[in-house]
């Protein structure tokens, strides 16, 4: 048996053990990516093999939690996919503005960059004080970072370009304070965002949302878990609400698909039909 095949067995045993003891089922995750993340975690750990790590992971909740924090980090950026944010600004926001107050669920917000991007956009479009965003993630460490709203200064040039391409007309530098190698996002952006833990595999819906964003999160899930997420989003959204997915995710062939129309193909902004 080759080394890689032994590791396959080890990973399968470990994931089953974690599910039985802690209830987190990473067997619902697409294997190729979870394997890469697990291998990365192992390389950084004190253990030589998953078998060695298993003993501690199954007995020590702290160790398990550090594993979860290590393998559930999604990366994102301010105004990732500028064309998407431009379309939200120009084509979805005019509908949102007809409501006195809107609620938005950002599922799998990671370190919060896209939630802050959306807050900037809504403020610029005249919706300041008229929205609340619930930004959730399974990983409490990234949520804490999201709440802090601190970005590496080295990225700001790229983020500024993204912002401008997304239709932003103000000066992006007005939204943060530079300090040494960090950029601290303005407190005014944070007041309308609630960061909270939420596990898409087991937790419930958020009621009466006008918009749900979940971009590049379900690509890591197997079909059954994807289906669960979409059901969750569908039951959270009001008729006329918007469901925003990543550029490579679609509602084609999905159960909830028939209740939605793609507002701006191919940018994956879907609108829930009335009735």
């Amino acid at each position: 048996m080759q080394r890689g095949e032994v590791e396959d067995v080890e990973i399968r045993l470990l994931l089953e053990g974690l599910q039985r003891i802690y209830g987190y089922d990473f067997r619902d995750y697409a294997e190729a990516s979870i394997r890469r993340r697990l291998s990365h975690w192992l390389a950084e750990s004190e253990f030589a093999t998953f078998s060695q790590a298993q003993s501690q992971l199954l007995r020590d909740r702290g160790a398990f939690e550090s594993l979860v924090r290590g393998i559930t980090v999604n990366v994102t950026e301010m105004f990732r996919d500028p064309a998407f944010f431009k379309a939200v600004r120009e084509q979805a926001v005019p509908f949102l503005k007809t409501y006195p107050f809107v609620k938005i669920w950002h599922a799998g917000c990671a370190t919060g960059e896209e939630a802050y991007s959306m807050a900037i956009l809504l403020n610029e479009e005249g919706m300041a004080g008229r929205f609340r965003m619930y930004a959730t993630d399974i990983n409490e460490t990234v949520l804490q970072k999201a709440g802090e709203g601190v970005l590496p200064i080295a990225e700001m040039q790229r983020f500024t370009r993204n912002y401008q391409k997304s239709g932003g007309s103000a000066s992006f530098a007005d939204y943060y304070t530079a300090r040494y190698d960090r950029a601290i996002l303005s407190a005014a952006l944070k007041k309308d965002i609630v960061f909270a833990p939420h596990n898409l595999a087991v937790d419930g819906e958020f009621g009466e949302m006008n918009m749900v964003l979940c971009r590049n999160v379900m690509i890591y899930f197997k079909p059954a878990l994807k289906e669960r997420c979409l059901q969750l989003f569908d039951s959270s959204l009001l008729p006329g609400g918007f469901l925003c997915l990543g550029l490579k995710e679609t509602l084609e062939k999905r159960k909830i698909g028939e209740r939605y129309a793609e507002l701006v193909p191919p940018l994956r902004i879907y609108r829930k039909r009335y009735g």
Binding site: A32, S33, R37, V75, I219, K248
Partner: peptide
Amino acid sequence: APPNYHLLVEQDGCLSLSADP
């Protein structure tokens, strides 16, 4: 592979994508 995504092969012979670093 699409721009801005990694392309991977799954054990069931399907493709998957990732937005990892």
